[in-house]
């Protein structure tokens, strides 16, 4: 998938992945896509809740060996 920015939040604990994602998202234009990588199990629900709240769209998400990857389109 074409991504405009990659946010690597591996190893970071709550609320850091969210804060990192928000800061990078502020720099994107509407419609651009962020690839988000996290190892915090809570981030699955956290990013869903954040995307809903901030009007972003989660295009795809994967889990592999405890690493979560999300593709989020800016709303």
């Amino acid at each position: 998938m074409k991504t405009d920015v990659v946010v690597d939040a591996k190893g970071l604990a709550c609320p850091m992945p969210l804060v990192r994602a928000k800061k990078e998202m502020d720099r994107l234009n509407s419609g651009e896509v962020m690839k988000l990588i996290s190892t915090d199990p809570g981030s699955v629900n956290d990013f869903a809740s954040w995307a809903k709240r901030a009007n972003h769209e989660i295009l795809d998400q994967q889990e592999e060996d405890g690493v979560y990857t999300f593709y989020v389109k800016k709303g």
Partner: peptide, 11 residues
């Protein structure tokens, strides 16, 4: 402060 940062990140 975790809640405050989270809320700020939510917008």
């Amino acid at each position: 402060f975790i809640i405050a940062n989270g809320a700020a990140a939510m917008g």
